[in-house]
Nucleic acid binder design. Sequence first.
DNA 1: AGGTTAACCTAATGCTATTAGGTAAGACAA
DNA 2: TTGTCTTACCTAATAGCATTAGGTTAACCT
Lengths: 205, 205
Amino acid sequence: MKPPNGIKNSGAKAKNTRERLVDSARRLFAENGYQKTTVMDIARDAQLSEAALYEYFKGKEDLLLAIPDLWVSELLADMEDQLFGIEGAFNKLRKYLWWTLRRIEESPLDAKIVYLFLKTNAAFMETDVYLNVKSLYSKLIEIFEQGRANGEMDPHLDPYVARSIVIGAIDYLVIRWLLKDRAYSLFERLDEAYRLLAKAFGPPP
Amino acid sequence: MKPPNGIKNSGAKAKNTRERLVDSARRLFAENGYQKTTVMDIARDAQLSEAALYEYFKGKEDLLLAIPDLWVSELLADMEDQLFGIEGAFNKLRKYLWWTLRRIEESPLDAKIVYLFLKTNAAFMETDVYLNVKSLYSKLIEIFEQGRANGEMDPHLDPYVARSIVIGAIDYLVIRWLLKDRAYSLFERLDEAYRLLAKAFGPPP
DNA sequence: AGGTTAACCTAATGCTATTAGGTAAGACAA
DNA sequence: TTGTCTTACCTAATAGCATTAGGTTAACCT
């Protein structure tokens, strides 16, 4: 099947090879974990030699960090689009939550890489991908500032603390769901969670 | 200093050796990360050969999992003690939060092992230590059930969802603090966070 | 005294990430 | 056409590291 002294790719096809490596790595890391997956496993899955992999990535960890590139930048572009035209801070917050969980449910492999392998990795915080993650988070700050300014939300609300609580809740839900092998729906108790958060951020009684 | 064909430990001293290994591993893992720390680093730090380490632990990961044993069981015992005699669900919740963060601040090495290396590790969830972690979490369920029953809290409050939010918030605060090298106080915005959570769980307006 | 065991050692073994040093094929200029 | 350059890939080391085999020494037990 594979020519002995293989047909070489050139130009456009090389891009394809890089993507093939990322795809193989994503699937194998997500299935078997970062440590238990060997560079040889990935190279073989992508129909390549180990040495060729090092033409595209500096090493195993560099490959890991490259996996969510595309997903996260798509998320960022889509978020602006999804929130566009929604009026009111609470409506935006609600949309943000449902949208986030839906995107995670649709891309469980990328989500596993990000939530289980990268979010607690100091090197990840130095990458360009993390800049995009921060942009996703900072949208929440805008929402809370808007809500506080227009009287929908508590005038004493600290947007950074509110953001911690929202992201903390999302992370916790997602990590448990991933560790339990996605055996239930991510949305199961989201209505109730939103109800509590809305109560927390709303004006005082 | 170290006798050439060393004096052997026996009985009581062997326990000491195991502890020495755990202490070295905790410090080195916390400082340099799990992957970048070698078994030889740990053995040398504990003044032992690599082979001897395998008399005490099945392997590198087994050693990692053993590190927080003592800390977590002490936490469990102390928590009961700390909450004893406190009246009211909100007072207990407040105490739970402040107590948790204080214990984490006092033991940053153990906290780093648990929050950065173990909480997203599926193998950790199968250990006995994790049973203790679950006990720590289930105390929150009791608190919310009590609060709902005695009218302090929202009668429609789902204790499991409330717990997710509290644990999510704690995890998020702790992980960021650890990744930022503990450059600020963990308690910095805890008052405001508690205020928001209390509003979320309190009776509807 | 002789045997057993606990605690530790040195020296393999074997796996895995990474690198050295190529080769074939197409592009391109003279 | 022929020679050089570059791209995309290869085989075969190299080197680091977790783990294991097979001891040795000293204390304890009977």
